[in-house]
Amino acid sequence: MPGASQPLTDLAVGSKAVVAELKVTPEHKPRLMEMGILVGTSVELVRFAPMGDPVEIKVRGYHLSLRRSDAALVFVKTE
């Protein structure tokens, strides 16, 4: 379905999308947002670590690594 939101981790490596929703727990949400991951922010899935976890993303011009399980709670929309 084009336009529907999907977990960040479902993106193809190297592709970009825009954050649509943060389904992270309220406890973790503020720090994720302070690191610059907000609804409407453009993110790029750069790569997965050799053992498949964690995941490296590029957001606001810098590189950040998140666990796969946390990144899967960041829902994105491709354009």
Binding site: V24, E27, H28, R31, L32, M35, P54, E56, Y62, H63, L64, S65, L66, R67, S69, D70
Partner: peptide
């Protein structure tokens, strides 16, 4: 406890 969130910057 809850597995903590990993926020690791790759400078």
């Amino acid at each position: 406890g809850e597995p903590p969130m990993l926020i690791l910057e790759l400078p």
